[in-house]
């Protein structure tokens, strides 16, 4: 029995002219103890899916189960066993760190003491501020407290909806380290994020765009699906370089990636020579051309274009 199964889920919302389809028949399953990433931009349907799985919304059609319990008929069972950290950190801003944790422990019929082992490592980091109001915590600390609150009843499945949005890079890194420690305890996690670079931190990911799954695979598997050679190009005037490359008829795509541009050609022959020719005719200096491995973002863009 898989901890999370999603079977052809469709969700629509009424809109001014007709309906907006947030989820267009989504299916996947998550294995026990897996960190499963749902990667996609805002508006892709991630939050709708989370709410359906946490029994907060009803899907139009399709079915889903958590630990074998149906999200519609067995919602009471599911509410007892899942932990949920919604997109906005859902803490009581005017309650202290300790009061928040105590409150969430009690409404889940447990005590801080009973499951302290599980949250200990995370809680110790915020314990020095336990009398501080949650509203006065920094983004990173709020995030840790929210995770503690979602964990305090020892859920078997943990839903984390964009837990790292708006949090600085250090806190994000620490947050993922915490998730790995929870994974060791056998907790299954569904994590969503709009940030492609976090995909490589998951065991498996589903790329989601406009309510559809583009691909479900391990991060390695996804980059493995990228068959064409990928070139990284760099020169003194990057903006002009991009326009020149895009003008070339043999180029399929050219996207800026920080200090370099990533270029894919329609055919595989002579692509390096073609780039060198562009650089030469454009009179560029400091030119660097390398064949590189694609990352998730390259794959996501290629799949979006497909």
């Amino acid at each position: 029995m898989k901890p999370i199964t999603v079977e052809n889920i469709v969700k629509t919302y009424p809109a001014k002219n007709g309906v907006v389809t947030a989820l267009k028949g989504i299916s996947f399953a998550v294995d026990k103890g897996e960190i499963f990433g749902l990667i996609g931009p805002d508006g892709a349907g991630k939050t709708s899916l989370f709410r359906i799985l946490t029994t907060l919304l009803l899907a139009d059609s399709g079915s889903a189960s958590i630990d074998g319990f149906d999200v519609i008929s067995d919602y009471k069972q599911i509410r007892k066993r899942v932990g949920y950290m919604p997109g906005k950190f859902s803490l009581y801003q005017d309650l202290s760190v300790q009061e928040n944790l105590e409150f969430f422990a009690t409404i889940f019929n447990t005590t801080i003491k009973e499951n302290y082992d599980l949250v200990k490592e995370i809680y110790q980091q915020i314990e020095p501020f336990k009398t501080r109001k949650a509203g006065q915590l920094s983004g990173g600390m709020k995030q840790k407290l929210a995770l503690c609150c979602a964990l305090i009843h020892k859920p078997s499945v943990l839903f984390l909806d964009e837990p790292t949005t708006g949090v600085d890079a250090v806190s994000r890194k620490e947050f993922w380290e915490m998730l790995y420690r929870l994974k060791v305890q056998g907790i299954t996690m569904l994590v969503s994020t709009p940030y492609m670079d976090e995909a490589s931190l998951c065991d498996r990911v589903a790329l989601i765009q406009k309510g559809e799954l583009l691909s479900v695979n391990t991060p390695k598997g996804i980059t493995g699906e990228f068959k064409k050679p990928l070139w990284s190009v760099k020169a003194n005037d990057m903006f002009r370089l991009m326009n020149d490359i895009k003008k070339d008829a043999s180029v399929e795509s050219c996207y800026p990636f920080g200090q370099v541009h990533h270029v894919v050609f329609k055919t595989q022959e002579n692509s390096k020579e073609e780039l060198e020719r562009i650089a030469y005719t454009g009179n560029y200096s400091e030119v660097e051309i390398n064949l590189i491995e694609p990352n998730i973002e390259d794959c996501f863009m290629a799949l979006m274009q497909a």
């Binding site: 492609m196 863009m301 979006m304």
Partner: peptide, 19 residues
């Protein structure tokens, strides 16, 4: 924050152009 990678790049090309 939160936009898809292609749109993000379109956004950055606007920035490059302005620059």
């Amino acid at each position: 924050g939160g936009v898809d990678p292609i749109t993000r790049r379109e956004f950055w090309s606007l920035i490059y152009e302005a620059s």
